[in-house]
Design a protein around this nucleic acid. Structure first.
Length: 149
DNA sequence: CGTCTTTGACCGGCGC
DNA sequence: GCGCCGGTCAAAGACG
């Protein structure tokens, strides 16, 4: 169980001491929001033709944790419910889509396994938790406060 | 009986 | 316009 995934609550400070807070073998945090634009939001937002009504404007920050673990579901204190699984062309392994069970929280998680290294799992968090985690036994008390907006 | 996982279908965007 | 690709939904089954 990871007791250091509360860094999602602090996206503005992620990338500084991420690796130090994760107790796993190795984690590479690739917060692609270093620039003011997201992965592909530049072209869409610029050429907005009123088609932004799709579903989500993808304004949520996303954090890609490249964790080396044997398990897909890394219990970070939240309850995740799998709502989909697809096989993308980039990876030979299926990609799982999780969503926070809380109705008030629409944080999504995307777990993908590297084709080159089956031990590497890319956990992409999308959105931000608006509620404290249900860590009833974790010792991360006093730090992972409710960074709700 | 309720919750969650599984899995196919469906939909929207984009490239050709 | 069609096909591909990625993301989500929803029905049904499994599990507690």
């Amino acid at each position: 169980h990871i007791d250091a995934f509360d860094l999602m609550s602090l996206p503005d400070q992620v990338g500084t001491s991420v690796t130090a807070r994760v107790g796993y073998e190795g984690v590479t945090a690739c917060n692609g929001y270093s620039s003011n634009t997201w992965w592909r939001g530049s072209t869409m937002l610029a050429g907005e033709k009123g088609k932004m009504k799709v579903r989500r404007k993808m304004r949520e920050p996303r954090f890609c944790f490249q964790t080396r673990s044997d398990v897909d579901v890394l219990d970070d204190g939240y309850k995740w419910r799998k709502y989909g699984q697809k096989v993308v062309k980039n990876s030979l392994h299926p990609r799982s889509y999780f969503r926070c069970t809380h109705s008030n929280c629409r944080v999504k998680k995307r777990v993908e396994r590297l084709s080159t290294d089956c031990r590497m799992v890319i956990t992409t968090y999308e959105g931000r938790h608006t509620h404290p985690p249900c860590d009833d036994n974790s010792s991360s008390s006093g730090d992972n406060t409710t960074t709700c907006f």
